[in-house]
Design a binder for these strands. Structure first.
Lengths: 192, 192
DNA sequence: CAGCCTAATGGCAGTCACTGCCAGATCGGC
DNA sequence: GCCGATCTGGCAGTGACTGCCATTAGGCTG
């Protein structure tokens, strides 16, 4: 048991490389034929691993393409202060997290969002990840109705902003994610 | 080509009866063992139909237990005016729809909500139905960001209210659904 | 009542997602 | 070089879901 082992041991690096290879392959095949007409065997063969190994990395074929979504949640979550209980506070922290994304990461996000837009399987799986994330944050904030409303109401704005932003980006517009999010939050507030 | 044929032709009645039989069976088996450990063959056998026939009535085993959810959407949708574009207006119409439910229907709702609370498969499938419903309403209202925020923000309050209400009911409290919904809407508004 | 069209059902074979199990290869520490 | 832990591949098995075809039952028409 490697006391303070380096994050990049050989095994760790190989694992990450394999996961990345599978993810890239899945994205390419899904973009070509849609997840509906792509089998796990297809992805595994194209990525150079056995189907059995595929399932050691991802629980479903859709998950293989949604790595960026998990990274997104990780990035946002670590920017949110522990004791936040106000919508303003959470929105601001979220916007700051969005503003910190690298160009490469933003590009990955756009790609996957555009893919999911026309792919029901991907959309559904992404929805479950969203819900799971909301559940975790909600319990982290107390688990009562107030926490639920807070987390889910924010999630609505966040997802709407992400889709709006990705669409604009995909159409060539140079939209700023944090700015789009703030604008969407304002529109949501205006509903009341 | 039965010009104004009765809704309850023999065939129609038998179909509805079969669907109801399958739904009741699924609910019972899910309550006993969870959807995870219940196979379609189990449900079909207990309901007295072949597995092949089961899939002619429901696309997945989870759907067999969520009939009340589809009925719920149908009931709420038909009460919502066509040209509604304000949150207040939609909330009020929704509350009125909720107030019109029969005791029997409310009982079905409580039962399924409590079942889904501890059953990940059911919860996930219900989530997809919710999303699909939101999508439809959103497109019905124009399909822009405003429509999306409107529909999904309301859906957050509605689902939170339904779960809160079902929990109270399950604990013996005589909670009024429309009232709980209005209270949750107020709490959501107070977030801003 | 007999005949006929259509809907409903059951069975069967097939695809595919996903899992448990076991055997072989590989890596890292000694 | 040796050993324990990890990674991998293959294989068999379960279960969801579908397409196809033969049989049955409902309901209309002559």
């Amino acid at each position: 048991m490697w006391a303070v082992t380096d994050i990049t041991s050989l095994r760790e690096r190989r694992r990450l490389a394999t996961a990345a290879e599978i993810e890239a392959t899945a994205l390419e095949l899904f973009a070509r034929s849609g997840s509906e007409h792509t089998t796990v065997d297809d992805i595994a063969a194209a990525a150079g691993v056995s189907p059995r190994t595929f399932f050691r990395y991802f629980p479903t074929k859709e998950d293989a393409a949604l790595g960026v979504k998990r990274d997104f949640y990780a990035a946002v979550s670590e920017r949110i202060p522990a004791g936040a209980v106000g919508l303003d506070e959470l929105s601001r922290a979220t916007a700051e997290a969005l503003a910190s994304f690298s160009a490469a990461f933003q590009h990955r996000m756009v790609r996957v969002r555009c893919l999911a837009e026309h792919d029901a399987n991907l959309r559904h799986r992404a929805l479950l990840l969203d819900a799971e994330q909301c559940r975790q944050r909600q319990q982290h904030l107390g688990g009562d109705v107030h926490a639920r409303l807070l987390v889910e109401t924010l999630a609505v704005a966040l997802n709407a902003a992400l889709d709006d932003w990705a669409t604009r980006r995909h159409h060539g517009e140079d939209a700023d994610l944090a700015e789009v999010f703030r604008a969407v939050c304002a529109r949501q507030r205006a509903l009341f």
